[in-house]
C-alpha cells in the first residue's frame, strides 16, 4: 500500500505542494484540501506542475473546500478527482499512511 499525502496550503502561499510532489513516491496519492484546493485549479501558474506530476501520483481534491471558496468543480485540472469528506475518509483507509504537509 502506498502513502496518502494531504496538502492544505495554496501553492501561491507555501512550498508545501512543491515539496510534496518532490518527495511523494511514485504510486502515492495526493489530496488537496482547505486552501490547497487552489493547486487543483486550471490555468494557474502552478497547473502545469500538477498536470505533469499526474504520471507518478494520483490527485484528489476536496469538493466542499472548492465550493466554499467560490471556485468551480468544472475548473479542476483534468484527471483530478473531486471527492467529499466520505471520500477523504475512504482515501485514508486505502493508503498505508497519511502524511500532512504542514
Amino acid at each position: 500500500m502506498s502513502a496518502l499525502h494531504i496538502v492544505n496550503k495554496s501553492p501561491f502561499e507555501r512550498n508545501s505542494l512543491a515539496s510534496c510532489l518532490r518527495l511523494a513516491a511514485k504510486g502515492s496519492a495526493v489530496l488537496l484540501f482547505e486552501d490547497g484546493v487552489i493547486g487543483a485549479m486550471k490555468n494557474t501558474k502552478h497547473s502545469d506542475a500538477v498536470a505533469n506530476a499526474m504520471s507518478d501520483v494520483s490527485f484528489y481534491v476536496l469538493g466542499p473546500d472548492i465550493k466554499a471558496r467560490g471556485l468551480n468543480d468544472g475548473n479542476v485540472i483534468d484527471g483530478i478527482k473531486v471527492i467529499d469528506y466520505d471520500g477523504f475518509v475512504d482515501l485514508t483507509t486505502e493508503h498505508k499512511s497519511v502524511q500532512s504537509w504542514l
Binding site: R22, A25, K96
Partner: peptide, 18 residues
Amino acid sequence: GRDELSKIINEQDVVLSF
C-alpha cells in the same frame, strides 16, 4: 538525496508533521 528520502518516507507507518 530526494530519491532516497522519498523511499524512506514511503516506508513509514506513522508520519508526524510539525
